[in-house]
Amino acid sequence: MIPGGALLQQIVNGLTVGAVYALIALGYTMVYGIIELINFAHGEIYMIGAYVGTISAGVFLAAGLPVWASLVLAIATAAALTSLYGLSAERLAYRPLRKAGRLAPLISALGLSIFFQQYVFLAQGAKDKVFPAAITSGGFVLGSVRVAYIQVAIILVAAALMVSLQAFVGKTRMGRAMRCTAQDPVMASLVGVPVNRVIALTFVIGSALAAVAGVLVVMYYGKVNYLAGYAAGLKAFTAAVLGGIGNIPGAMLGGLFLGVVESLAAGYIGGEYKDVVAFVILVLVLIVRPQGLLGVRVPDKI
């Protein structure tokens, strides 16, 4: 009954969703890698990015800029302004708790996530925010598979950002400082690494990437609402854990893998069970291979 082309179509659908997960997962993975904190508010940052992008695109379009310029500028604005949320979240909610054990920052993160969500609700209302420029559903057909240009754009942008992030962390001075801080913050500060600034930068980069993901998603689907961060954040975190938390290529792999698995589950088992499949995989991975697909096993610090 189900034609073979459908399988390929499902994989394309899954890769698009997965690329978005991967972009958000990068933020989780970087923050966890460096201060071992699950930044629950990260999903909300993604949602805020989508809102900022939508609103600024509206402003640029109203100013009479051409559509492509508005979109590019909207992405840039969203990345710039949303990264400030990451910056202040780190400064106000996490930095004071850096020495306070594990439970306190986690609860703080949870609180911040609720705060951001409600802040957007109060500021923008409960209604869906619709993206001002209708991105025409133009695309091409490959055999029986239909691909929209914007899907290609999402996957390409995600891949490009991940490659440059990997290069940044691996090749630059700041990247080295990051890896150094991740290994041992005390030692890092002793050898002159500005630990606070490095951690703040991690939050800024992670938030900017999430914001880009947010704007891409709102362009593709055409709408966002204030609750969007929760589900996306949860999935992206799952992706980060799947790939091996703290590992940048792992986040990408985990995101794409999760996206495709979900898509196949929704297509062949039924839409209602796709989230169950995602969480079951998470639990299984944590039990069988807690370090994730690409992670290396790190013994607990004593």
Binding site: A100, A104, I107, G111, L112, Q117, Y119, L122
Partner: peptide, 20 residues
């Protein structure tokens, strides 16, 4: 009532800092 949840969120953050 609209502000209840935002207050909760903020309270959780502040509580962890000043009165964990």
């Amino acid at each position: 009532a609209e502000y209840r949840l935002i207050v909760f969120g903020a309270a959780m953050v502040l509580l962890m800092q000043y009165r964990p």
